[in-house]
Computed example of a mutant assay.
Amino acid sequence: MMIVIAPEKAVKQELYWVNTLLENGLSCFHVRKYAWSEQEIRDYIEGIDSQYHSHLVLHSHYFMAKDFGINRLHFREIERKDGQHIDYKDSHYRLSTSTHSIHDFNKLGQEWTYAFFSPVFASISKEGYGGTGNVLSDLPLKNNKYVQLIGLGGITQNNMIEVLSAGADGVAFLGGIWQSESPVETFVECQKKWKHNLYNKEIKKC
Score class of each variant (00 low, 15 high):
G175R: 03
I150Q: 10
A172H: 00
H59A: 15
N144C: 00
W178F: 09
I177H: 08
Q148E: 10
F68G: 11
N197V: 09
V163Q: 05
S60R: 11
G154V: 07
I102W: 11
H92C: 13
G176L: 10
G151V: 05
L108Q: 01
S125Y: 04
Q84H: 15
I177D: 02
Y62M: 07
S54D: 09
L21Y: 04
S96M: 11
K142M: 03
T99L: 02
P7R: 03
M1F: 05
N71A: 15
M64N: 01
D90T: 08
I161S: 12
L149K: 03
A6K: 05
R32P: 11
G151S: 13
S50L: 13
F29Q: 06
F63Y: 15
S96E: 01
E181A: 15
S123E: 04
Q179L: 15
P183K: 07
G175P: 05
H30E: 08
P119W: 03
G133N: 04
I48M: 09
S137N: 02
F116Q: 00
G83H: 12
A172P: 02
W112Y: 05
D43T: 09
K107L: 14
G25R: 09
I203N: 03
G170Q: 11
F117Q: 01
E202F: 14
H74S: 03
H103C: 04
C206R: 12
S180R: 08
P119H: 11
W36C: 09
G175I: 11
L174N: 09
R72W: 13
A35N: 06
I78F: 12
G175H: 06
A115T: 02
H53D: 12
G170V: 15
Y34V: 10
L22M: 02
Q51L: 13
Y88T: 07
I161T: 14
Q51W: 04
P140H: 05
T97Y: 05
V188Q: 12
G131H: 12
I5V: 13
K126R: 08
E40Q: 07
